[in-house]
Design a protein around this nucleic acid. Structure first.
Lengths: 187, 187
DNA sequence: GTCTATAGGAAGATAGAC
DNA sequence: GTCTATCTTCCTATAGAC
């Protein structure tokens, strides 16, 4: 099983280009011609339709593949994540992992915001992916909700561009969050 | 100066309808015909063009008016906001106000995400509006950044629909946030 | 300021040759 | 599996009568 195919099929290259375009230009703003152009097919010829039955079918397939890819990555990350014993270090490790997870879902999050009506499956998929957050480590702690909200908020802000937290590094943010949830006096 | 005009001009009703549509369907997904239909003009006749020179001009005008409206609302709210003396109560009052502010910027936030390239002024406008957050009360406190991030995260999640915090009421969230930043032991 | 009519183009999609 | 050609529909935008 080759981890990376040297020559992705045209179908896969269409899915790549399409997801990029849907995220950047939105569904309506994306044209089949532009998709064809990006994968090296002659634009406006409808060669695309040998691979997908319609533009809507393309969106659903692109989302489906992206969900599968990102969830696999996240599960792999979690399996190989070593949790330190020290509670503070454990907390910041999980926080970092959560930010990584969020970044992986960026494009889907954006699609969820812009095309959520068109592909409700995105929302379902993300909701099934996210409950895994901090399971066993954070769950049932009173500060869990605030912590997750803070990580989402921090992440979203720099996704939005410019951002309120432009000058706050990830390390500094996690440090502040750790101090707040685990006491600031402890070394 | 009438606070609410009984009969808004056609121009204003176009701006209302247009903003709704741009937020819901995106710029490309919005048609002039649909705008005309919503304001009671015959669809597809181009009557719209007696009021605006192009679809792009309409977007800019709609954004401009929305920014002005929301910022005025926020300034008005702030001016009439009575801050309690008790630090905990003061904190939760400001937190509630911040959530209100965020809600007011929802539609602009969405447009910023989807049409940011087309109207870069949105980002500038929001960045000038937001530094006012918690000024004088929160600024320079170590937990400020985390607090704002948490409020943004909480808000975004229910904006996205479904949401991770569906079962967490605003009051409960602010309570948890207050406990975390002001100590849980104090009554 | 609204309608009729329409120009002019681009979009999604299909049929058929190669 | 890709291109030529084309159908049909929809869209932005304009000209001109009322």
């Amino acid at each position: 099983m080759p981890a990376i195919k040297a020559t992705p099929s045209t179908r896969d290259r269409i899915l790549d280009a399409a997801l990029d375009l849907f995220v950047e230009e939105g569904f309506s703003g994306t044209t089949i011609s532009e998709v064809e152009r990006r994968v090296g097919l002659a634009a406006g010829t409808g060669s695309f339709y040998r691979h997908f039955s319609s533009k809507e079918a393309l969106l659903r397939a692109a989302v489906e593949r992206e969900v599968a890819t990102r969830m696999a990555e996240i599960e792999h990350d979690r399996a190989s994540l070593a949790l330190p014993d020290d509670p503070r270090k454990q907390f910041s490790t999980i926080a970092e992992q959560t930010l990584r997870d969020l970044r992986r879902f960026d494009r889907l999050l954006r699609l969820m915001l812009t095309e959520g009506d068109r592909v409700p499956e995105i929302q379902d998929a993300m909701m099934t992916a996210l409950p895994g957050w901090g399971a066993g480590s954070w769950a049932d702690r009173p500060s869990t909700v605030v912590t997750i909200a803070a990580l989402i908020g921090y992440h979203i802000s720099d996704l939005v561009g410019g951002g309120v937290f432009k000058d706050v590094t990830q390390a500094a943010f996690i440090e502040a969050l750790t101090a707040l949830t685990h006491g600031t006096t402890q070394s």
